[in-house]
């Protein structure tokens, strides 16, 4: 742990081991300063929604949490493991952190069931039978067990995204990251994916969701973070965040997405 976080732990400001702890994180793409002094602590079981205009760095930030992007300054601890350039640490964090992408990123050459079984058998070294049972369990939870032997290309977008959620859950992650999970979906399918996410939130999963679904944020989030220009601008409980935004930038953003 870093000095800052040790002080914070000693002062009782945060739990001894938060799920995610980002301290003074900075990221550049070449000369472009993409993330500026990000400090963020996510407690176990907390549901966090990150919103903000496009290009604000919100996706980049959660991609840093499972090492899909590297960072140049500061530190990120996930369940106590420091994300550095150490490949073994990154692989360990990734196996404990599920990620759901905007474009699903299912493996088109594998069936739905194979998509779900792959990582548990190879990363967790789980016996095939057990991995299949777990996969079917989660496919039932996202309500598509009957599609298990189809290929991703044969499913609708909403179904694919629910499979992607089930695939991540099969690794029995401690944290789930959602990177705009409904942005690529037709309006009719958004609800089925959000319902799945709400069920997951109700079960107590630690979740960090980059999303513009403000209804979901109100219903399921413990905390909402607003980002702009690579920085965290505002951070509040959902009700206060939506009813009484403090920063003018937040007000403008909320007006634009809610007021049309």
């Amino acid at each position: 742990m870093t000095d800052v976080s040790q002080v914070l732990v000693a002062s009782g400001a945060i739990d001894p081991q938060p799920s995610v702890e980002i301290v003074g994180m900075n990221k550049w793409y070449g000369n472009y300063h993409a993330l500026k002094d990000i400090d963020l602590v996510v407690a176990e079981g907390e549901r966090l929604v990150v919103c903000g205009p496009s290009g604000s760095g919100k996706s980049t930030m959660i991609r840093c949490i499972n090492g899909l992007e590297d960072y140049q300054e500061g530190s990120i601890h996930v369940d106590g493991t420091l994300l550095s350039s150490d490949v073994k640490d990154i692989d360990k964090v990734r196996s404990d952190v599920g990620m759901v992408f905007q474009h699903f990123n299912l493996f088109p050459h594998l069936s739905i069931l194979e998509n779900c079984v792959l990582a548990p058998t190879w990363v967790r070294k789980m016996p095939q039978k057990e991995a299949k049972d777990i996969a079917m369990h989660f496919l039932e939870r996202v309500k598509i067990p009957d599609q298990a032997h189809k290929y991703p290309g044969q499913l609708s977008g909403g179904q694919q995204q629910r499979v992607a959620i089930a695939r991540s859950l099969c690794m029995q992650p401690r944290i789930m990251l959602f990177d705009e999970p409904t942005s690529a979906l037709d309006p009719e399918m958004i609800k089925e994916v959000l319902d799945t996410m709400i069920t997951l939130a109700e079960d107590g999963m630690t979740m960090i969701c980059v999303t513009h679904e403000m209804g979901f944020a109100r219903q399921a989030a413990d905390r909402v973070i607003f980002m702009d220009a690579g920085q965290i601008i505002e951070e509040n409980a959902p009700d206060q965040f939506f009813d009484d935004p403090q920063s003018p930038r937040t007000k403008m953003f909320l007006n634009q997405i809610l007021g049309h």
Partner: peptide
């Protein structure tokens, strides 16, 4: 990224 995010090695 999908493969990486599941913790599969290179």
């Amino acid at each position: 990224e999908g493969a990486d995010s599941l913790g599969l090695s290179y």
